[in-house]
Computed example of a mutant assay.
Amino acid sequence: MASGSPLDAKVLSVRPLDNKDARWMNLVEIEYRAPDGKVRTWEAMRRTTRPKDSPVDAVHIIATRQSLGGSGPEVLLEKQFRPPAGKVVIEFPAGLVDLNETLVECALRELREETGYVGELTSSGSGAAAGPVLFGSPASSFSRALSVMVNIDPTLPENRNPQPNLEEGEFIDCFWVSLKELHQEIRRLNAEGFAIDGKVGAFAEGIEITKLWQ
């Protein structure tokens, strides 16, 4: 398992990369017919790793548990350095779908590998394979993902002292945040210099707006 903190990382340089030298993604030109009838072009990024039988590139895991202290439900988040952001990003556990792997299998595998926790699908998560498919940046990327909701039972022996199995080059810190305090905590982390992943930010804003309309 890789050792070190995400906080120790920093960008050293940025240079152009030719498609033939790219391992994970390519820049492509799309030719399309616009509503005015004209043929136009568009530039976008496309991952090279999506299995042919998968509707998405990756899954994002929204893992929750009941607080051991009785303060209500908590959500599991990660701190991970992301070179394009140049910062440590607050995000959900996530990962790319492997060949011949279902989306549910991917979600539970990635959760175990990145966090050490063993989870089970919630009633909402059981329909994971049906979508909806989420387009993370449709103006610039083919990237598609799916959110899978998972419950973690903190009383199970395997969840009392979880041990992640990180890949070479992965440096992830996991932490729990109360759903009641998530919006406030996200703003605090942002003020401290962390980058907030869009999915986490939207999730927190969604919870906050429900409080206004209760």
Rank of each mutant, 00 (worst) to 15 (best):
G198W: 09
Q66M: 15
P162C: 15
A34Y: 01
S141E: 06
L76V: 06
A130C: 04
G127F: 06
T102E: 04
M25N: 13
E113I: 11
R50Y: 00
Q163P: 00
G4K: 02
P93D: 07
K79S: 10
V39C: 07
L68Q: 10
R160A: 10
E91S: 08
D173A: 07
R82P: 00
L156Y: 07
G125N: 09
R187C: 12
M45R: 13
S54T: 10
F81H: 08
S141W: 06
S5C: 02
P73S: 15
W176E: 00
P51W: 02
V11C: 08
S137Q: 11
Q214V: 13
E158P: 08
R82E: 14
E168T: 15
L212G: 08
L212P: 01
I90K: 00
I207R: 06
A204Q: 01
V89G: 00
V104P: 06
D36R: 07
T102L: 05
G169H: 02
E91I: 11
V39H: 12
I209S: 13
S67N: 01
I61V: 03
W213D: 15
V88D: 04
D173H: 14
A204I: 07
R33W: 07
E43S: 11
S137M: 08
S123V: 11
F171S: 10
L96E: 12
I207F: 13
R144I: 07
F194G: 01
R188I: 10
W176A: 00
P83S: 06
L121Q: 02
L7T: 14
E208R: 15
S5Q: 04
A58V: 06
H183Q: 08
S178T: 03
A202R: 13
D53G: 08
